[in-house]
């Protein structure tokens, strides 16, 4: 079984798990983790294919994606902390005031 297939399998399952986490879990922190998981999964695929095609540009992209993911985590954490401190708890089902 060649490496590419393994990589795709890994990426796919990691991404799917991340997606499932974001969609189905209610704790905001967990959702954030799912988000990060998705981006990490993509990175796996990109790194592999960068090596396959001998392309340095794609590796640069990976670096940038890591940076972006980090920034996203910062923003997400800031927001989650705020919500926790506001006393309503960090649970997605609480955030339903805006609707319709």
């Amino acid at each position: 079984m060649n490496l590419t297939a393994v990589v795709w399998a890994t990426t796919g399952s990691l991404f799917a798990i991340g997606l499932a986490v974001v969609t189905f879990r209610r704790q905001l922190l967990a959702m954030l983790l799912g988000l990060e998981l998705m981006l990490a999964a993509v990175n796996v695929a990109l790194v592999h294919h960068a090596g396959l095609f001998d392309d340095a540009e794609a590796l640069a992209v990976v670096a940038l994606v890591i940076a972006v993911a980090a920034a996203e985590a910062v923003v997400g954490l800031a927001l989650i902390l705020r919500v926790r401190r506001s006393g309503r708890g960090a649970d997605a089902s609480v955030l339903t005031e805006l609707r319709g």
Binding site: M38, V42, L46, R82
Partner: peptide, 23 residues
């Protein structure tokens, strides 16, 4: 805050989907 969080998660997922698509 609530709106920002919703925006964040939805936007983050969209970004992740974009990256998957890119890969």
């Amino acid at each position: 805050l609530e709106a920002a969080l919703k925006y964040f998660f939805a936007g983050g997922t969209a970004g992740a989907l974009f990256m998957l698509g890119l890969s």
